[in-house]
Every structure is written in C-alpha cells, then in structure tokens.
C-alpha cells in the first residue's frame, strides 16, 4: 500500500496566495523523497497539507489508506513525525521531556497534567535518543545543546511517535554544513533501517542528489520534475528553473563549502 497519496491537491492561503495547484503524487512506504524548489514554490505547503497543519482546500490527501480530514487528525498526526527548520523544542524543558512529547497523541490529557508518562514511553524515548546518539544528554536543558544536537533531539521526538512518515521542513536550513550532513545522514539511516517514509524540503540540490531516492521539484505550486536524482541533470535543472536558478544554487553551494 502506498504511504501517501495526493490527488489534485490545491491550497490557497487566506491572503489569496495560491501555494499548490493541482498536485498529484503517490509516495511508497520507505522512500526518501526530497522536495526542491525556489522560495514560494510550495515546498512547505506540500509537506504541511500532508499532516493538515495547513489543510488542503481542494483535492484529497490519503495517508496509509486513511483520508486526512478533521475527525481523524489526531490519529493521523500520531503516525506522522515532523521536523522543523527552527527545531521547535521547548527550551526550558530537558531533552527527555522534549522527546517524550512525541507520545502525547497516545496519552490522555489527565495524565499529562502532571507531566507523567508510563515506563513504556520512557523506553521508546531512550531508544530514540540512542538512535540519534544523544542518550548522554537526556537530562540537560534543551537550550544548552548546539543547533545540530537540537535538531537530532527533534528527530528523536519524531521517532518516539513510532511514525510511518517523517516530514522534514527545511531541516538543515539553520545548521552549519557538518551538522547538516549529520542530520541528513541520520534521516537517511532511519528511513532505510526502519522503513519510514521521509519527505524532506531542501534547497541544496547537492544534498538532494546524495540522499534522495526520488526528487520532486516544484515551481509555482506545480510538480515540474519527479524522478530519481540521476535524472536531474544540470540540463534538466536549467529547463525547469532557468539559468539563474542553477547559478545561484551553485553560488550558494560554494559559499556553504567555503564556510565549512
């Protein structure tokens, strides 16, 4: 069964901006998909309609055979982990608590009032922290960690959900090149070892080529390329985005390498 199916999905924001325009996409379980595109192309929106953070206006989104709609949101979101550009951890809480919040969909609010969790949740959280290599930081406050470490905590939080899908919205945009590679390698490892579908927004084409099984390129809310990384030649890129886009991406990559 396909993990995620988008059928003619459209999304227009309240200010009239049309972010997605009739997207059709089918993603198999366990794929590592990278979404590319310039700013405003709809990359974030594409991810966010999947777990209805920004619900689609038209069309259908199906996750694991279930239609994404208001009623079953909590259930669907429990199975989808999300990683954000700015990590979105709660600074004052320790790493373990942050990771444990991944289990909240499964917990009744009464127990949550006192911030209590069952032993099984702790075991899941510990396993997740081991997976991302941060077990020794479990009791430190989240804001005492570096950017790369915080993003790994965020990934651990997503893992604790025992998700079928992980959506990564510009996961490395705020990280230095070394941490970026660590995070992407980690996501790839999780994808391969646990058969979790990963959909990541990136603007570094080179990263996409290294890690992706499949690249989906967007422009102005439409899919303009959908295929394996090898097919995304420089020639194709020129076709899709025009020379300017390729050159500026090249400049960006050079800058990134120079900073390393």
């Amino acid at each position: 069964m396909s993990a995620i199916i988008l059928k003619q999905v459209g999304k227009t924001y309240a200010n009239g901006f049309k972010a997605l325009n009739g997207i059709d996409l089918t993603i198999e379980q366990g794929q590592f998909v990278v979404v590319l595109g310039p700013s405003g192309a709809g990359k974030s929106t594409l991810l966010r309609v999947i777990n209805a953070m920004d619900p689609a206006n038209s069309g259908e989104v199906t996750v694991d055979g279930e239609l994404v709609q208001g009623r079953n949101l909590r259930k669907i979101r429990a199975r989808i982990g999300m990683v954000f550009q700015h990590f979105n951890l709660v600074d004052r809480l320790n790493v373990m608590t942050n990771v444990l919040t991944g289990r909240l969909a499964y917990r009744h609010w009464l127990g949550s009032l006192l911030q209590l969790f069952p032993k099984s949740d702790f075991e899941l959280a510990e396993a997740a922290l081991a997976e991302v290599g941060l077990v020794d930081k479990a009791w430190q406050r989240a804001d005492q960690l570096s950017g790369g470490q915080q993003q790994r905590v965020a990934i651990a939080r997503a893992l604790t959900q025992q998700p079928r899908v992980i959506l990564a919205d510009e996961p490395v945009a705020s990280l230095d090149p070394k941490s970026s590679e660590d995070v992407l390698a980690l996501l790839k490892k999780i994808c391969v070892e646990k058969n979790i579908t990963v959909i990541a927004n990136l603007h570094q084409i080179e990263f996409a080529k290294i890690y992706a099984d499949r690249i989906v390129a967007l422009n102005a809310g439409r899919v303009v390329f959908d295929g394996p990384p090898d097919d995304l030649t420089d020639h194709r890129l020129n076709q899709i985005y025009g020379l300017d886009a390729k050159e500026s991406q090249h400049d960006r990559d050079e800058l990134a390498l120079a900073d390393a």
Binding site: N51, M53, L73, G81, M82, N88, V90, T101, L104
Partner: peptide
Amino acid sequence: GRYEAMASVG
C-alpha cells in the same frame, strides 16, 4: 513554532 510542534505530534 512550539505550538506547531505540539500540533504535529498530535
């Protein structure tokens, strides 16, 4: 962003 994170975990 913190609200978003909580929403995303359900």
